[in-house]
């Protein structure tokens, strides 16, 4: 009997023990790897190649955080998550950071116990149509069938847009990006709607990419960015400022190639960023060369963008909104000082 009670007690204690840990930073340092939630495969943002290497803008964001915290951009464990799983994985502590083309919205920021640490890509929802339809504007789409990929904020935006303009539609919701594209190609629907960055990726995969076009209308704001758990401000600061450091490096012309030289230069702003002056790293609980490691190992924001989604990649997306504030875009990071 005594033994039974002991066993029960142990089991109960294990179940009652809350998983509230000391802090994500300590956990990551102790573990030696950063656990990063990414998508199951979205070209340009997070996708795994034949050799199992992850690439993409969202992947690079995680690598930069790993470089800042652990001084090694490769110490990341990528956890592929579907749209349905992503928030639960972060809430339960399975991942330290969610970097999975996730739109920053009011509901997600307030009711899910999460914090958005910034924006690493400004996107917007658009429409892909068959050129043969002869449609020139989204306002001509009354009565159309629309292919949508499940698990995004796209469905709500679509409904809002059609309601606002008094138009009718029927939505066919598919599970994956490929099924959505196949439905579009098989004429199951007239138009395909998704974030614009994805529309270009989908169009490039069509049998005849020239047969479809992206309509000019952008019907929503989709600021995508990394997400962390609420209640751990130190970790929130680290992710937020790593992203800011990458954008600041882009603005100051600090690249992976010249960062070492620039840190020895004369510009005090750059020196503060790269840790040869001031104690920006220490204030985050990191080493002085946190931002230097991130920029050298991953590159600044501009390098990340060009490598993954830029004009020379199959996605061929121009900087547009994602250009720096002083170059026609809206990318603007607070200064490191």
């Amino acid at each position: 009997m005594k033994k039974t009670f002991t066993v029960l007690g142990v089991v109960a204690a294990a179940m009652l023990a809350t998983s509230a840990s000391a802090g994500t930073l300590e956990d990551v340092k102790k573990r030696g790897t950063l656990s990063c939630g990414v998508s199951t495969g979205l070209p340009g943002f997070s996708i795994q190649d034949e050799k199992g290497n992850w690439t993409g803008l969202d992947v690079d964001t995680c690598r930069a955080v790993a470089a800042a915290v652990l001084a090694d951009a490769n110490k990341v464990r990528f956890v592929p998550l579907t749209a349905k799983e992503r928030f639960t994985a972060l809430q339960s502590g399975e991942i330290d950071i969610l970097s999975r083309n996730t739109t920053w919205t009011h509901t997600r920021d307030t009711s899910l116990g999460l914090n958005f640490a910034g924006v690493n890509y400004y996107d917007g929802q658009g429409f892909l149509v068959q050129k043969a339809l002869g449609v020139k504007s989204a306002l001509e789409l009354d009565g159309a069938s629309v292919c949508i990929q499940a698990g995004t904020t796209t469905e709500l935006n679509l409904a809002d847009y059609f309601r606002e303009h008094g138009m009718k539609y029927s939505a066919v919701v598919f599970d994956t990006s490929d099924q959505t594209r196949e439905g579009f190609e098989a004429a199951r629907c007239d138009i395909l709607t998704s974030d614009q960055s994805q529309l270009y990726a989908i169009r490039s995969k069509l049998g005849n990419p020239g047969s479809a076009m992206v309509l000019p209308e952008v019907i929503s704001k989709e600021p995508l960015g990394p997400v962390v758990r609420q209640g751990d401000d130190a970790w929130f600061n680290i992710v937020k400022w790593t992203l800011n450091a990458l954008i600041n490096a882009d603005e100051m012309g600090v690249t992976s190639a010249n960062a070492k030289d620039m840190s020895m230069g004369t510009n005090p702003g750059i020196k503060r960023l790269l840790g040869t002056e001031g104690d920006a790293g220490a204030k985050l609980g990191l080493s002085a060369d946190w931002a230097m490691n991130a920029v050298i190992q991953v590159g600044n924001y501009g390098e990340m963008f060009d490598r993954n989604v830029g004009p020379k990649t199959p996605l061929a997306i121009s900087r547009g909104l994602n250009a720096l504030w002083n170059k026609g875009g809206i990318l603007y990071a607070p200064p490191v000082r």
Binding site: L16, S19, Q91, S111, E155, L156, L158, R229, Q230, G231
Partner: peptide, 28 residues
Amino acid sequence: DNTMTNMERRGITTGFAFLNETSGFGIL
């Protein structure tokens, strides 16, 4: 109880109040 406590601690909304909110999306 453990789940509820943890969710509350992390500021995650619980309960079935959402069932009365407007959905805002269309169904085929």
